[in-house]
Design a protein around this nucleic acid. Sequence first.
DNA 1: GAGACGATGTTAACGCCGTTCACATGCAAT
DNA 2: ATTGCATGTGAACGGCGTTAACATCGTCTC
Lengths: 202, 202
Amino acid sequence: MSTEKTRYHHGHLAESLLEAVDEIASQFGIEAVTLRACAKRVGVSPSSAFRHYVDKRALLTAFATRALNQLVDAMEGAKQQVQHHGGNAFHAVGLAYVAFAIAKPAFFRAMWREETIYAQDGDYLAATRKLAQCIQGGFAQTLRDEDPDAFSAQELLAWSSVHGLASLLVDGPLAKGKSRDELLEAASGMIQALDIALDQPV
Amino acid sequence: MSTEKTRYHHGHLAESLLEAVDEIASQFGIEAVTLRACAKRVGVSPSSAFRHYVDKRALLTAFATRALNQLVDAMEGAKQQVQHHGGNAFHAVGLAYVAFAIAKPAFFRAMWREETIYAQDGDYLAATRKLAQCIQGGFAQTLRDEDPDAFSAQELLAWSSVHGLASLLVDGPLAKGKSRDELLEAASGMIQALDIALDQPV
DNA sequence: GAGACGATGTTAACGCCGTTCACATGCAAT
DNA sequence: ATTGCATGTGAACGGCGTTAACATCGTCTC
């Protein structure tokens, strides 16, 4: 380890590059993420990135996976919060989904960019599956042994509405001139309407 | 007018470039859309595009606007179809939304890319507003004189769920290995559940 | 008709991008 | 100590968006 002197071998370049993507995306948006910019921020030559990621798309895939896992963590945190202090778990989890998108729009965009990531990557797929299970978690009626990719109409409605609201707030016209709290309140209202709806028989 | 000989002045370059974006996006995805590729397809030098669009982002904004209007047309067509032949108008309009996204994923992506278009452009904003009204159209209870940007919790739920399903099918893991008809059937089921939900009191 | 002028298209160049390849460096096993 | 391998470097490639100086042409005026 020794000091932080400039060493020829960086040591943790793969993760440091991910961190650079994080910072640049947070500051300037996902479109501004450039291999050269990431390398410069880490203090390394541009070509060194290719020792750890086969191309830019692979780096963005790793970042998307990271972001997905962060989202899952946020949702599970919200669920535990509610389990300890009481409240509607489904509402809390859904709100956490939207809140994450509002707080980290660039991350949310990066997660769902089929054209700029390798969407069939194993780790990425596993992360999306974990997210799906996290959302399905509120549904006792789901048959657990069936195909994990199968969704009931109500599960589909739950994920779609929360995901759609997040998307419309991040990339759509809904957020125009509204504060974070106003957006969260609108989201809370929608999730409440959804919650009522999901109690209805099909 | 005369013949279709190679003339120095193209004549309809602005629209022809839009058409080129359409074709390239359809064939190779929105990420493959390049000013130089569009210019080459039209048979014109790359820099000529800048006589009609201040930059690439402006061209993509015009394309997004066009795509939005196409979506609105599809939805209104579906509505009229139902009005003449009977059926659930809300269901038909929602399904048209999802069907458009499945049929033209690149267009759907282009519509909602805040970072690559000028989302505050007048024409683009007008198109999004028309789309919003098209979706709100099914809701008699909406107070028409109020802020057109205001959405009730139920309207929010309606747009979000349909938009979210479309997004998840286009950029998410839901569509994995499913045929177009299977996807449309799943969408139909979700919209049905949504329709029931929207009849419930808040 | 002649000439001026503005709109539209061209050519050449700039810097930045992702990517590759030959090469340099240093760690670890022998 | 030597070898071998993983990791980082530097220079170069073609493609990108964009600009500026220049070419062409339709149209408006006399």
